[in-house]
């Protein structure tokens, strides 16, 4: 049953993916100038200086700029579906290869932020709900308000100022792969993780707190108390599972926010993930890579949302058999 549900949900993501691909494809059409030149990374000056006739002709054929737009789109989509996102004129290697090389760094950062955020958010959100109007609740509200009102990139700057400039405890830019030097990896990933993790936590705390307060008023909680269960069991067994079911659904959306926010954070810390790649490519006018990265991240986000849905179905007995 779950498999059928998963497949059905997967089919339902197809229209979304289709529309996203149209939007991303259209972005390139918006760039002013000769599209062949744009995709070759050309930005002014004499054409003959930088691009040979052969290269231009090859690109013209690949893009099929003289064909109707829908046909161009279909061709682009067909290649993208086979994992071919074009070639970066700057690096002369397939965009997919560049993305895959940068992907681990982004995944580590996202995972670290989600783990940190969740570790902070769950206990704080639950405690705030259970002990309303106590110092824990005020602390949780403070964290939420802080996360909502402070722009992530400013928090990043302040952390750089504090830990990098004044205290000198942590490196403020760059990256070391975990397999090379795990300690250095942790040192480099700490500051960006704090920024993204706190932002993530703020949303989750708010959601958990509100949901938990509502769950505490449910009849099943009264039943659990009437059984003589300890408050610990009532909260962490009975309410917790119900509240987590609801929370999983928002996690997908929050991960999407996280990916959006990571662009600027990766750039501040010169953290070489795919978001930083996107920015570098924009400044290098490497639009093949820009297009590739955007569609890649969008797909990843849709997939995350899909996973969150499946996870919800897996955990929630009520939806599984529908």
């Amino acid at each position: 049953m779950l498999i059928r549900y998963s497949l059905r949900r997967l089919l339902e993501t197809i229209p979304t993916l289709f529309i996203i691909s149209v939007i991303v494809f259209s972005l390139v059409l918006l760039i002013p100038g000769d599209r062949v030149l744009v995709m070759l990374g050309y930005s002014g000056g004499d054409i003959a200086d930088v691009i040979s006739k052969e290269v231009y002709a090859a690109m013209e054929i690949r893009l099929g700029v003289n064909d109707p737009i829908p046909l161009q789109y279909a061709r682009w989509l067909g290649r993208a579906l086979q994992g071919d996102l074009g070639t970066s004129p700057l690096h002369a290697i397939p965009v997919m290869d560049i993305i895959l090389a940068r992907l681990p760094a982004t995944i580590y950062l996202a995972l670290a932020s989600i783990i940190l955020g969740t570790l902070v958010a769950i206990p704080l959100g639950v405690a705030a709900a259970v002990k309303q109007n106590t110092w824990v609740d005020h602390l949780a509200n403070g964290v939420v308000l802080f996360g909502l009102v402070t722009p992530g990139f400013w928090v990043a700057l302040m952390l750089v100022l504090l830990f990098g400039v004044y205290l000198g405890w942590l490196p403020t830019f760059g990256y070391t792969a975990p397999q090379d030097d795990f300690v250095e990896f942790l040192r480099h990933i700490t500051l960006p993780t704090i920024v993204l993790g706190l932002d993530f936590a703020a949303n989750v705390i708010r959601f958990i707190r509100t949901d938990f307060i509502e769950q505490m008023r449910e009849d099943y909680v009264r039943t659990a108390r009437a059984k003589g269960l300890s408050e610990r069991l009532v909260i962490w067994k009975h309410i917790f599972k119900n509240s987590m079911l609801a929370t999983v659904t928002v996690l997908g959306f929050d991960i999407s926010r996280l990916m959006g926010g990571s662009t600027i954070i990766e750039s501040i810390f010169a953290y070489p993930g795919i978001s930083f790649l996107l920015l570098q490519s924009i400044f290098n006018r490497d639009f093949a890579t820009v297009q590739g990265v955007v569609i890649f991240i969008a797909l990843m986000v849709v997939f995350m949302n899909y996973l969150a849905d499946i996870l919800y179905a897996l955990l929630n007995p009520r939806i599984r058999y529908e």
């Binding site: 979304t16 972005l27 959006g260 662009t263 978001s275 955007v294 986000v301």
Partner: peptide
């Protein structure tokens, strides 16, 4: 479903 900030940057 798309990250809004990312879309804005690309646009």
């Amino acid at each position: 479903a798309m990250p809004g900030r990312l879309l804005a940057i690309a646009l």
